[in-house]
């Protein structure tokens, strides 16, 4: 079956403090420890995955035993990175998430709803539909505000001038951007930059993994990155 967290592992890449000591499903490679006897084989990481190798490792580790999140074991990561690197990372995530999921999931259809992120809340995907079907492809769909924004935008572009489509787009955009601009204390200039970054990253996540998914017979509508606050 499709393990729900596989599709979502990336969004919990760095566990927020609110998930302190939860039984975790996956740990970032920057701060992780393994019991040596559980590493099978010793060439543990999948060398074909240039990104998402730790997600893959986590998924295989879950089958060995318990993963334990000790969020008091803290490392401070530098945040000194360039725009190019940031974009490259997210492009890789968009592409390699699909490969990791392809590697582990069974054929079927799975639908998640992911609303309510932002404004200090952790968005959590709710699995609303799951069925193992013998289809030629696997479908994993995240229904997110960003997805609806895209659908409405495309529809309103196709039927240009249609007031219903335009207003729906406006509402979807308002819902999507709300968390970027409300409930934060950062200056407005930065807010705009971050909102733009988030928008671009979400575009990459959605279309990057959609395109990559076609190569792997996977219909994958990726989750969106929330404007999550500390």
């Amino acid at each position: 079956m499709i393990i729900p967290f596989q599709a979502e592992a990336y969004s919990f890449r760095y566990l927020p403090k609110s998930r302190h000591r939860a039984l975790a499903l996956f740990f970032p490679g920057a701060n992780v420890a393994f019991r040596r006897s559980a590493l099978k084989p010793i060439e543990f990481y999948d060398e074909k995955l240039h990104s998402g190798e730790d997600t893959d490792a986590g998924i295989r580790m879950v089958q060995q035993g318990e993963l334990f999140s000790t969020s008091s074991a803290r490392v401070v990561h530098t945040a000194n990175l360039s725009l190019r690197k940031l974009m490259l990372q997210w492009w890789r995530i968009a592409v390699y998430t699909v490969r990791v999921i392809r590697k582990h999931c069974d054929p079927g259809v799975e639908v998640f709803v992911r609303f309510g992120g932002g404004l200090g809340m952790d968005a959590q995907s709710r699995n609303v539909f799951y069925r193992e079907l013998k289809l030629p492809f696997t479908a994993i769909l995240f229904l997110t505000p960003f997805l609806f924004l895209n659908i409405f935008a495309i529809v309103s572009l196709m039927t240009w001038g249609n007031p219903v489509a335009l207003s729906l787009t406006a509402v979807a955009a308002a819902i999507y951007f709300r968390s970027d601009f409300l409930g934060t204390k950062i200056p407005i200039g930065k807010r705009i930059v971050f909102a733009a970054l988030r928008f671009v990253i979400n575009l990459m996540l959605l279309y990057g993994s959609l395109l990559e998914g076609f190569k792997h017979r996977l219909l994958y509508l990726n989750y969106e990155l929330d404007a999550r606050r500390a």
């Binding site: 420890a33 580790m61 999140s69 490392v75 401070v76 990561h77 530098t78 945040a79 000194n80």
Partner: peptide, 25 residues
């Protein structure tokens, strides 16, 4: 327990604005 993982915090010390995006996220 076969695996543990800790908390990864982003330092704001020498952060670029792109890095601040992570801190914010």
């Amino acid at each position: 327990i076969v695996s543990t993982g800790g908390f990864v915090e982003f330092s704001s010390e020498d952060a670029t604005i792109w890095g601040e995006f992570y801190i914010n996220q």
